[in-house]
């Protein structure tokens, strides 16, 4: 019978991604309930060079799976992972719900004939039965998933949802050979995000965005100044760009720009229409200021302030002189 946990590590440009540690942290937390060993599979051209980073508390074994590509390639990745699966016969496989994870987890689940869930942010094990929790409908609801009749389950875990494993361990290191596999795509190059120059909503890490709550064109300047003081890029909702109060390049949303690199989004006087949310709801830290306690923006915000954006702005300024 399948037993143990197999963690599929992620690497890019010769470095393990931070999510790997989180997968190990998640595995460690449920190890006793699942039963069996925790193995971490490192799939890379030179997996031995990355082994140390995976020898963390809770890891019994690091599996080295050498492949013929430097960067993630789905065919090789799945073949290697399948090798580890067939040799270790785990009951639980943990993969990252990252961009590369999207590129192979479903393929692995199909090939391993495993139960499967993605974007999982909590795992429960009850009398040996694994269940998983994920979000649904833009986090408005949570779904508890079960895997009836499956003796193997693959869960793709949401980044930043599980505490990272720490503390070195003297896990054994084993090399497995991966059957020769044709790679049907080839990495050519990485293209780094374009740096500064002009208004850069997609590249901004911190965006201060204003909506119709700003009221009039003459009030916009005050928030432009605040954004500069706070070292944020100024963004806006559609009506503000439509009125010509800010350039279209600053519009966030469905028909505007997406806040792709944003870590912090401060939304002032924005109601939170679906079209605006389309450009920013993925941001991890959203702070919304709105005078209407029922504004939809509060459904996606991490922090909410019911209040007047002018008052908050005046007070905020005091902290960023």
């Amino acid at each position: 019978m399948a037993q143990g946990i197999l963690v599929i590590a992620e690497q890019r440009r010769g470095v393990l991604s931070p999510v790997t540690q989180e997968l190990i942290g998640a595995a460690r937390a449920i190890k006793n309930d699942v039963g069996g060993a925790v193995s971490v599979a490192i799939i890379a051209r030179d997996p031995a060079s990355l082994a140390e980073g995976a020898r963390l508390d809770g890891v019994d074994e690091v599996l080295l799976l050498p492949v013929t590509a430097d960067e993630f390639q789905p065919d090789l990745h799945v073949a290697a992972a399948m090798q580890a699966v067939s040799e270790r016969d785990p009951s639980l496989i943990l993969a990252p719900h990252s961009v590369d994870g999207w590129g192979y987890a479903a393929a692995l689940a199909v090939q391993a004939d495993a139960g499967f869930a993605t974007d999982v942010f909590a795992i429960q094990v009850d009398a040996g039965e694994v269940t998983a929790v994920r979000g649904a409908y833009g986090e408005r609801a949570h779904a508890l998933l079960e895997f009836p009749g499956r003796d193997r389950v693959l869960l793709a875990l949401r980044p930043s949802a599980f505490p990272a494993a720490e503390g070195a361990a003297d896990s054994t290191v084993t090399e497995l050979s991966v059957p020769e596999t044709a790679a049907r795509s080839r990495h050519l190059e990485f293209i780094d995000p374009p740096s500064e120059g002009g208004v850069d909503i997609p590249g901004a890490e911190f965006i201060l965005s204003i909506g119709r709550g700003v009221g009039e064109e003459d009030n916009v300047e005050e928030f432009a100044e605040l954004a500069e003081q706070m070292q944020a890029v100024l963004g806006c909702s559609r009506p503000i760009a439509d009125a010509g109060w800010l350039p279209k390049a600053r519009q966030v949303g469905y028909s505007g720009k997406t806040a792709s690199s944003c870590k912090l989004y401060l939304a002032l006087g924005i109601s939170g229409s679906v079209q605006h949310l389309a450009g920013m709801k993925h941001v991890e830290n959203i702070i919304a200021v709105n005078s209407d306690a029922n504004a939809g923006i509060f459904n996606v915000a991490r922090y909410g302030v019911v209040g007047d954006m002018f008052e908050v702005s005046k007070e905020l300024r005091q902290h960023f002189e």
Binding site: G115, F116, A141, H142, L144, E146
Partner: peptide, 9 residues
């Protein structure tokens, strides 16, 4: 691959 046992808020 999975079955929703329940949804909740």
């Amino acid at each position: 691959g999975a079955r929703v046992r329940k949804m909740y808020l």
